[in-house]
Design a binder for these strands. Sequence first.
DNA 1: ACGCCCGCCTGTAAGC
DNA 2: TGCTTACAGGCGGGCG
Length: 278
Amino acid sequence: MPELPEVEVLRRDLDKDVVGRKIKSVEVVTMRSVRRHTKRKQFTEPLEGAKIKSVERRGKYLVLALDNEQSLVIHLGMSGQLLRAKSAKVAKPKHTHVIIGFTQGGQLRFVDPRTFGEMFVTKSDVIADELPELGHLGFDPLDAGISVDRFAALLRQRSMKLKSLLMDQKFIAGIGNIYSDEILFQAGLRFDRLSDSLSPQEVRRLFRAVIEVLQDAVKYRGSTLADEGFVDLQGNPGEYQDHHQVYGREGEPCPRTKKPIMRQRYGNRSTYYSVSQV
DNA sequence: ACGCCCGCCTGTAAGC
DNA sequence: TGCTTACAGGCGGGCG
């Protein structure tokens, strides 16, 4: 379940490693991974011969701008991986669905066991306008753009449970199940508190927690859980899971109170929290 | 219009 | 031990 930190780690890796490279060939093994296109060629033709100009992240999406006015958009879904192979000879992992070969040699591979991820190509200038899932994204917590006051105003606009709000991509882009729990623990707030019920001090705590947790997670190169297996472009796992305070730690002592971490079903998924959150 | 639940997937692990 | 079932969850869509 790559969330913002994992996608940001990949963005930085791609920025160093594939920007400037020219695409020689594209092989689509599994059409489901490019399901917005009905024909393979709609995906492969705009890519072949194009040079990668830049790599941006929008929430959990990666956008690779090409030198032909088109962009390659990637969403990793739950189990998607992007892996660099120095040569085509390197053994392909199971569930390799798309292979992008570069003129200078080497490949970029899209590997995705659960196939919730996808790749597609679209004209660069219509991304925000014509793709609602990208156009409707809320603010990016790693952009320094938003102020506490603006954040407070946005919270007051709705009366939504905090966990739902943090995971709502239209409100804030890039947070999923793991980081919403970690952020709420850091902020000392319960997942079911209503967004318009927070004191100014609680708003500030939440604001700070969002930024701190996500920045920290990027610093430790993302979270790699046993059942998921996020890895960076070179195939290395992250280390932030060792810094999780509550996620996946049901029954373990809360770092603050030593009372057992609670787990509760909320919105059809597991939520971890401590009784110290109010 | 919004909150909630399902379906899409596969690998892993718990349960009988 | 081996089979079945539950669970993991991002996101679109459908329903109330």
